[in-house]
């Protein structure tokens, strides 16, 4: 009985984990290239969620077609904030970049609140579900999972097979060396920031396909915190590490919740959160390069 429940929750966790992973790749990409932690990360996820909501509720466009729209909006926001703000802060101390990205997040939240209000919203895109016996998976969740995997694979190919991707990797390795070798480092920074934000806004679409309720301007905060844990699991600077970190996180989150619920006199939801932050600290302490890196 409990094992069936656990297995069912783990399947849900794996599906959600793939989305979490994709939702963290942008954070890791930006940290890897610009060495900037985007504290406003969750706000960009929220923007993606509102794009989906608005397209579906107002125009009847299904969430799958919201993906390219979100990507374009994300790229545009990324370039905008890079050239107006981040570009001037590349060499600034952490204090400046952390606060600036936080302020960008607040700006987005308040702008969305101004347009859509702050109440909780949701949408209902019913396209059927499959019953796996131990758990039920709506197709929307499956699509979101497949979409996440596809985007991760595309990013991998883009990184490894294109000139721009190679330039980006060279900047991650050694930005000064790349500059000497004729790489347009500023261009790489701009493109990486834009793609990072593009991925993050897109992940907002996929996340609402998994959880189509609770959409509101301040929903991003908890995703920011989760993304930090996931990114650290994957080594912080590696987008693929982040993807696998997401899978691990999804499994641990759902698995530990099931187990904590068995304990007497505790709040399992809070303990699950505690576990994830304890994990974050442990990894930073013993293996700051992430779980997956050999070194």
């Amino acid at each position: 009985m409990i094992f069936e429940q656990l297995a069912g929750n783990l399947i849900q966790g794996l599906v959600l984990g793939a989305i979490y992973g994709m939702a963290t790749m942008g954070l890791s990409l930006i940290f890897g290239v610009l060495k900037v932690v985007n504290v406003g990360h969750g706000a960009f996820i929220m923007v993606g969620a509102f794009v989906t909501l608005w397209l579906f509720n107002a125009l009847g466009i299904i969430p799958i077609f919201a993906i390219p729209v979100a990507l374009i909006i994300g790229l545009a926001l990324g370039f905008l904030f890079y050239y107006t703000v981040m570009r001037k802060l590349i060499k600034a101390p952490e204090l400046a970049t952390l606060l600036a990205t936080f302020a960008i997040g607040v700006l987005l939240e308040e702008t969305i609140k101004l347009i859509f209000g702050s109440e909780f919203r949701g949408y209902n895109w019913a396209v059927g579900k499959i019953n796996l016996g131990i758990t039920v998976l709506p197709f929307t969740k499956l699509y979101a999972c497949l979409g996440s995997v596809a985007i991760a694979v595309l990013l991998y190919l883009w990184f490894n097979k294109t000139r721009a991707g190679t330039a980006m990797r060279s900047v991650v390795e050694d930005s000064e060396g790349a500059r000497v070798c004729g790489v347009n480092v500023d261009g790489v920074y701009a493109l990486s920031f834009a793609i990072g934000i593009g991925l993050t806004v897109t992940s907002g679409v996929l996340l609402t396909m998994f959880i189509p309720v609770g959409i509101n301007p301040y929903m991003g905060g908890s995703y920011t915190l989760k993304a930090f844990v996931i990114a650290v699991l994957g080594g912080l600077a590696s987008p693929y590490g982040a993807f696998f970190g997401g899978l691990v996180f999804g499994l641990i989150e759902n698995g530990s919740y099931t187990l904590f619920a068995l304990l007497p006199n505790v709040e399992p939801f809070a303990l699950t959160r505690f576990l994830s932050f304890a994990m974050l600290l442990l990894i930073l302490l013993i293996r700051p390069t992430g779980l997956l890196r050999a070194k």
Binding site: V37, E94, V232, F260, F269, F274
Partner: peptide
């Protein structure tokens, strides 16, 4: 830890401590 790693670790401490208090009552 230094820089961004320090900042993230301290976020983890704050949130972790809060959820420990709530979770373990």
């Amino acid at each position: 830890l230094r820089g961004a790693y320090f900042a993230i670790a301290t976020i983890g401490v704050n949130e972790g401590f809060r959820y420990l208090i709530e979770g373990a009552k």
